[in-house]
Each structure stands twice: as structure tokens, then as C-alpha cells.
Design a protein around this nucleic acid. Structure first.
Lengths: 321, 321
DNA sequence: CTACCTTCTGAAACGCGTTCGAGGTCAAGC
DNA sequence: GCTTGACCTCGAACGCGTTTCAGAAGGTAG
């Protein structure tokens, strides 16, 4: 492999001058530049990216920790992160973690070892305080409300919107309300927000048997539906954690030949549109962009982005021909 | 920053012995190991990942070129790639390219500069021959049938399934068939396959005005639907390029108060299930796994994975209570 | 007792580009 | 004539871990 030293030797100039040519810097005479360039072209030389990173002490890699590649929350967030990364010449490295603490710790260690310039946790198994300890090794951003943990964060401000959702249900006279969540309340800020909102609107916590956690896929949701049905829990409505998951619920009710209760979706997915569900748009693309900006700027501080309850368009009348 | 030389100096042993301790290699006496480890712990030293990569001449990074982060094709493919990467300790670097040749060339140059150990093109704007030329710098894998270009590939074998789809339509007596595609036929192998299948089944190419290209999102599909409607093209059926896009089409017809023609989806998405559409599952997770395996093994050869036409489950009868 | 193999350790080369400080040249300004 | 400041170039240090090879010490089979 030819390297910068070879170019210097063959061209008769010094390494530093070659470096200046490679990086299109000033203070190289046209004549020298041409001579060096010719040798570079002749040997078909390109500088080694890893050596450059080592020398510069920077990789332009940002690690993004996520549990699922195929979940809309992560897909949308990632989309925003990529968009922002692209426009600043950073690269996004995907770090799968199934909320696994050991794995996440490894990624934090990788940050310490300078494998990444910054880390974004779209979700995490480790406690925030553990993540916070690693901030001395580089910027770390989370994508949830960190409350009293002083860690940079960009997240969807969900509470008010969950209240809107419950208000909607209350106005319609619904009282027995199921809730689907991906992870239980202490660890999941999202779930916590739903519980709090329920409390604010109805004055009570949701009944434990109506809350189903560990629901991430439509199949999980279908199982949750099976549970509601076989336990004979008569529900007026269900706040689902995703339009797609609402589809899973619907599947369960249909298989039991029952009309599903009133469903509210989340994530503003197409399936929700098709079913004509109210849904909650958390603007995750925005959140991703902000998370990335925090990560590379190294700023501290939290950025909350308001979610929004979207009511379905009225289903159009179809003229049967 | 403390480095391996500091540890050597302070412990009184040589760099190579410290390196052996760091990498848990043999030929270090217990006593020496303990002494060195103590210094490491005391200085809270970790080796620099970039320096290690430089030294080893390997980064364990695989670049994945993709045009959209949020498209189901890429999401599913990426899911497979990540899964495979994870189990082999490789990392996945996302390289957005909107079929932009300049950008893709840059990524190829990055490969040459050793920024990645291998590249996977889930899609590409450059011709395959251009990609092929860069294989001397590292493994490159594409995710489509490369036909006569001798480049490693893992892809969904779609032709037979598209024939199945058109046969289905033919059996139902449909003749005027719309086709949605993301990119036009010469560059897109997918589109090519649809055209070929149409020809095989019906004996003719699809009418040009019935083929709508540049459709990647449901909104694009909606526009395609608007076109069909405003041009008064009476269609019997439409082969869409995605269940979600079928939703966009449906939206167009509904807004014009018309019943949409018979739709066939692709990608096996939830929206398709909800609409009760036949769909085509291309098994992209599988494809992603295979693509990754090809990339890191450096093997040549093509892996085709058969797609599958899935007929909808019969819509269950709902007992109105 | 020799030949040879292990185990353990170190020096030095290797992978490779960036950057700082210093030195030299030449022209413009005072 | 002298100072000042571009402009150009170089050497050397710096970022940092891995690996090869040589060599010392100790053991053992023949």
C-alpha cells in the first residue's frame, strides 16, 4: 500500500507539503502542487481514512443506540437523525441493543475508546444516571424526558397530548380504557406519561388489568386483545401505542367476532389512516434532528417537541357505480 | 490522554507486554499481568479504538447505501443486515444517497480509503459496472439481480411472483392493469421484472400511460391515482409497489368518490392486511442477512430469494352485538 | 550432556496522516 | 536601507496500538 511518505519521497517534497496538497490547503506553489499531484495520480494514491481519523482525533461517526430497526418510533427518529447527520457530514452508526444493559455499556465504552464522536440513545436499558456518567467521554443524548437527570435530551412532549386523548374519550362518555405500552411505567417515560394523563383527566390511575405492557408489535397487540377478550374485560376504548398495533388489536376482536372498542392510535401511520383512527403524531423526525444537533454541538439542555392529537378525516362517501 | 506507552513506562514493562495484557493473550506471567493491570486500572486507561483499527487495518464497519430511511424496502433490508452484523460484531454505517451518483462515488472512494470493510448497495444510482470497478478495494454487494454484471448480489427473485400476480389478475378477467414503480425500467430491475412478467402473461408490454414511475410514498401513489382518474383511464386493477402505496391510491379514488380498482400490494405491510389486499412478500429481512454475509465473507456469487404472493385472509364475520 | 522446545519479555518496525515551529525567500511599505 | 509580512517548504513530533523477531531462561527427551 502506498502512503503519504512514498508520495513525498517520489516527488522529492516533504510529507507536510504532500499533506497540504491532499487537503487543498494554501501555501503550496502551483508548480509544486502539480508535481506532487502527478505522483499521486500516477500511483493512484488515496489517503487512509482511519489514519486521518486517528490523527485528527475525530471520526465523524455518531452512534445511535436502538432496540428495533423496524419499529416506527425508531424508523422515524432515525430518519431525522440521518437527515441532520447528512447535512453536516457526519455518519450514523447503528447500535442495536434490546434494552440490554451489558450491550449498552459496551457502546458507552466504545465512546470512551473514541470509536464515536457522540452517542444518541433512542431508548435505553441502563438508568439515565449510568449514561450520564459517561458524558465525560463525549456527548450523549437521550430521546426522552430526563426529568431530574441533567443529561441532554430531545424528546416528544407527550403529556398534554395524552391528556387531550383522554379528554376526547371522556367527552364521549368512555370510562373503561385500555392502554398499550411497550415497557412498564417506571422505566418507560412514555408509559409514565400515559398513566399521569389518565390520572389528571379521570382522577384515578388506570386499572392495572387494563394496562398491557411489552407490546411492541401488532402481534403483541393482538395478544393483548386476546387477553382483554378472554378476561371479559369490557372496554370502552383503548389507547394503543401505535396505529399498527391498533391493527393487531382489531385482529383479535375480529377473530373473536366482536366489534373492537374505540381505538386511538399513535405515530401517525398509514394503517391508522385506513382505519380512520384518531392518532397522535409525535413528530419524531423533528426529534431526531434535534437529538443529532445536540449530539454534535455538545450542547447541554433539553428540547421538548409538542406532540399532537390528530382526528381522522371524515371517511368520504363512495359513489357505488 | 494516557496511552499504551504511558502504561508501559509506569509499569516498567514493554509496550508489547502491555498489549498482550490488553488483548488477553498468552505468554504473560500472572505476576506481570497483575502488575500491568493495576497500572491500567489506576490510570483508568482504555485503548484507542481508532488506533487499533489503523493498526489492524480493519474497521469492522460495513457501509450500507440507501436512498430512504423510512421506506419499507430499506427498513426490512436494514433489519436483516443489522441482525447479521450484530451476530458477527460488525457495525452498520448508514450512507444516505438519493440515487445520487456523486454521493455514491464518494462512498466508493471511502471504501477505497479503508473507511469501511465492505459496502452494501441496497439501491444505486451508478451503473453496476461502476460499482464493480471498485471491488478491488473491498467487497461490494448489491441487492438486485445483476444479470450479466459479475458483482456479488443478494436479492429477491421477483419475476415468477409478478407472473403469479398477473395470472391472478388475468384469471379474474382483468386486462387494463396499472403499475406503480419507484423508478423506471432501464435502471430499476424491479420495474423491469414487472414489465417482463406482464409481457409473459398477457403477451404485451403494459401500456405506457398505465405505468407510473417515481412512486415511493403513499402521496406519490395518490398523485398516480389522480392521474389515472383525471385521464379517465379505466383500470381493472393496479399492481402497486407497496401496500402503503395502495393506501395512497385508495385515497385518490375515494376523494373522487370512486371505488378503486382491484389492488395488489407489495412488501406485506399492515396496511395491506387492513385493506385485505393480496400482497407480495419479498422476504427482505432474509435478503439483508444474505447480503451482509456476502459482504463480510467476501464471497462472490449471487443469492436469489424467492418472493411469494400472499392472498388475503378472508375478512372475518363480525357479530354485531 | 546436548538438542530442542516452552514460556516470557522487549526493541523496533509497522500501519499512516496532521500539525507545529522554524527557516528561507521575496516584495511592499516606511 | 530596513522592517514587516506574506508565501513556501521541511523536519520532527504527535496521535496510538499491533506484530514480528530476537533473545533469555528454564525444562526435558534422548
Amino acid at each position: 500500500m502506498t502512503n503519504i511518505r512514498d508520495i513525498a519521497q517520489l516527488s522529492g517534497y516533504s510529507i507536510s507539503t504532500v499533506s497540504r496538497v491532499l487537503n487543498h490547503q494554501n501555501y503550496v506553489s502551483d508548480k509544486t502542487r502539480a508535481a506532487i499531484q502527478q505522483v499521486i495520480d500516477q500511483l493512484d494514491y488515496v489517503p487512509n481514512a482511519v489514519a486521518r481519523d486517528l490523527s485528527r482525533g475525530k471520526t465523524f461517526n455518531v452512534g445511535v443506540v436502538l432496540p428495533h430497526a423496524d419499529h416506527p418510533y425508531f424508523t422515524q427518529l432515525l430518519h431525522g437523525i440521518m437527515q441532520a447527520a447528512f447535512s453536516t457530514n457526519y455518519r450514523v452508526v447503528l447500535l442495536p441493543s434490546k434494552y440490554n444493559a451489558t450491550l449498552e455499556l459496551q457502546y458507552l465504552e466504545d465512546l470512551r475508546q473514541k470509536a464515536y464522536d457522540a452517542l444518541i440513545f433512542t431508548s435505553h436499558g441502563l438508568p439515565l444516571t449510568a449514561l450520564n456518567r459517561y458524558r465525560r467521554y463525549g456527548p450523549i443524548v437521550v430521546c426522552e424526558n430526563p426529568h431530574d437527570c441533567p443529561i441532554p435530551a430531545a424528546y416528544a412532549e407527550r403529556l398534554a397530548t395524552y391528556q387531550d386523548a383522554f379528554e376526547l374519550l371522556k367527552q364521549r362518555g368512555y370510562r373503561h380504557i385500555g392502554i398499550l405500552a411497550s415497557r412498564p411505567a417506571p422505566v418507560s417515560a412514555t408509559c409514565q406519561a400515559m398513566v399521569t394523563a389518565h390520572h389528571t383527566v379521570f382522577g384515578t390511575d388506570p386499572a392495572p388489568e387494563l394496562m398491557r405492557t411489552d407490546v411492541t408489535t401488532p402481534s403483541d397487540a393482538q395478544r393483548a386483545g386476546d387477553y382483554y377478550i378472554t378476561q371479559h374485560l369490557k372496554l370502552d376504548a383503548i389507547l394503543t401505542n401505535g396505529d399498527d398495533n391498533a391493527v393487531g388489536l382489531r385482529r383479535a376482536y375480529h377473530q373473536h367476532h366482536q366489534t373492537p372498542p374505540f381505538l386511538i392510535g399513535q405515530e401517525h401511520q398509514l394503517s391508522g389512516e385506513v382505519l380512520g383512527l384518531p392518532t397522535i403524531d409525535h413528530h419524531f423526525v423533528e426529534v431526531g434532528i434535534k437529538a443529532f444537533d445536540l449530539a454534535v454541538s455538545g450542547q447541554t439542555g433539553n428540547i421538548a417537541i409538542a406532540s399532537q392529537l390528530l382526528l381522522p378525516d371524515p371517511q368520504p362517501q363512495i359513489k357505488r357505480v
